Amino acid sequence: MTREEKSQVIEELTAQLADNTNIYLTDISGLDAASTSNLRRACFKSNIKLAVVKNTLLAKAMEASDKDFGELPETLKGNTSVMYAETGNAPAKIIKEFRKKSEKPLLKGAFIEEAIYVGDELLDTLVDIKSKEELLGEIITLLQSPAKNVISALKSGGGTIAGIVKTLSEREG
């Protein structure tokens, strides 16, 4: 690979790192062709981009990036694949699913919404991370709950103050 080609790859990797808030570093070495194909297919279905990268070029891209990748560059040993995802826990779920049948992919580390996770032992933690949309949905549900109680109390009590008080007291008791 010429110096110009390396420089081009570093620029592309730097742009990918800048455009994505959820980045997983994995080791998929040792997977046979069929398993690798299945992994790529699963990633595609979950809107995850999977790319095999050269460690030195990724390290330079991380260095050139505006983001602070903390200890992640230290995990760039051996074979490295990068998973870019819109949802923070999607790659972790795919990795966990694949690990039911195989020892790989291994999680080297992840950069999720500016938080850094290093080590395969954190896979279960990453699976449990809720996406921004999931958290917003939970908050909206919690906020709607008291309003729904008041509305149902108004409807069931016939709209009278006595009916409302009676309904609310029954719910608390």
Rank of each mutant, 00 (worst) to 15 (best):
D124K: 10
Y24M: 09
E97V: 04
V150T: 01
S37L: 01
V165K: 15
L122C: 10
I48N: 07
Y117D: 00
N149D: 14
F98P: 02
E63D: 14
K45I: 14
D68A: 11
N47M: 09
E11N: 13
K104A: 11
A147K: 13
Q144E: 11
E5N: 09
T14D: 01
V150S: 00
A147C: 14
I164F: 15
D120G: 03
D66M: 07
E5P: 00
S29F: 09
A153G: 11
L106W: 09
G173H: 14
I129R: 11
Q16D: 13
G109M: 00
I112N: 06
A110L: 10
V53Y: 12
S29Q: 13
E134A: 15
T75Y: 06
S35L: 15
T87N: 10
T26N: 08
S156C: 12
E114C: 01
K49T: 14
E114A: 05
G159A: 05
G78T: 08
N89C: 10
L126H: 07
A64M: 02
K49C: 06
I95W: 08
E134Y: 03
R41F: 12
L13W: 00
K54S: 06
E103C: 04
K148P: 04
L76E: 02
G157L: 01
L57I: 11
E12F: 09
D124R: 05
E103G: 08
T14Q: 12
R99W: 05
D66T: 13
A59G: 08
K67H: 07
E97Y: 08
N55I: 07
